[in-house]
């Protein structure tokens, strides 16, 4: 592998307007040299550093076991780093700063769609009536207006995921963490949700950290791709995607998209230890 992959392969030979805009964003959170060890000797993540700025759409891309989900859990505060620090701009984070979407929709089956979306606000002591407008707004944004009273079992996989996204954004958080949210969906639904996710983000103007193992998804969605390798989990490359937002479906078939995907694939290949070697 050639070392010049690190500065973004094909797309960032000269500083583009997108790169300049990106550099001007305000810092939001920093992962500083974070290591996470499970038990005595299972190193899930080694020496990860990442500066997240307001408005970034970052994909953590890598094979299974590369620590991307561990990194997400550390950022979410669900576990603590073994060494290193996670720093939030302006002190600590509050519960309201974060929204989370898991690989499964993770809805409460006993509650209606509206009650599920209400959850983050309910946990902060807000009544359903006082949140009604926000809930309806969030559901409209994900395209589920009119489904407030439905139960999760009545919805398709894609619709459940939309409810999950509505729940993550209903508090208008600064950052949304997504852990392979579309991995279990069929491709048609996934493409549609990719497009809709970008539209939602544009409306919400929030930062997204998106864990995926799909090169195509990471290039289409994000403006920064962090490529990670396994055993031990670590960051090996960072690529930028300078295609400006809003990105339309046409981007998927463009030459730039293909070039970015190739660059990301090569980086991922290297993460897996060369041409397929070491991949289970």
């Amino acid at each position: 592998m050639t070392p010049d992959l690190a500065d973004g392969g094909a797309a960032s030979a000269a500083p583009s307007p997108a790169a300049a805009e990106r550099a001007a964003r305000a810092p939001l959170m920093s992962v500083r040299n974070v290591t996470k060890v499970f038990g005595r000797d299972v190193v899930a993540l080694r020496g990860m550093s990442l500066d997240v700025r307001q408005g970034d759409f970052i994909s953590l891309l890598g094979p299974s076991g590369c620590g991307k989900s561990t990194a997400l859990r550390l950022i979410a505060g669900l576990s603590n780093p073994t060494s290193g620090r996670i720093e939030w701009a302006g002190g600590g984070r509050t519960d309201a700063d974060l929204g989370v979407v898991f690989q499964e929709p993770t809805l409460m089956p006993w509650a209606t769609v509206a009650k599920n979306v209400w959850l983050p606000m309910r946990l902060r002591g807000k009544s359903f009536a006082s949140c009604r407008a926000d809930i309806e707004d969030a559901l409209e944004t994900v395209g589920l207006k009119g489904f407030e009273g439905a139960y999760p079992r009545e919805l398709s996989g894609g619709m459940k995921m939309r409810v999950s996204i509505a729940r993550a954004m209903v508090t208008r958080p600064k950052m949304i963490l997504m852990d392979e949210p579309f991995a279990a969906l069929d491709e048609i639904t996934r493409f549609k949700l990719n497009n809709d996710l970008l539209a939602m983000r544009a409306k919400l103007n929030c930062t997204v950290i998106f864990v995926t193992h799909s090169v195509f998804e990471s290039v289409f969605l994000s403006d920064r791709i962090v490529v990670m390798a396994a055993r031990p989990g670590r960051v090996i490359h960072e690529l930028n995607v300078d295609e400006p937002y809003p990105r339309a479906e046409i981007f998927r078939t463009s030459a730039e998209y293909a070039a970015q995907c190739r660059a990301a694939s090569e980086a991922l290949n290297e993460a897996m230890g060369g041409a397929g070697a070491g991949h289970e």
């Binding site: 859990r73 979410a76 505060g77 669900l78 519960d95 974060l98 989370v100 898991f102 499964e104 993770t106 409460m108 959850l119 983050p120 946990l123 902060r124």
Partner: peptide, 10 residues
């Protein structure tokens, strides 16, 4: 995952 979500939302 729901338990994690409850933790995240404090």
């Amino acid at each position: 995952n729901l338990r994690d979500l409850f933790s995240i939302y404090g």
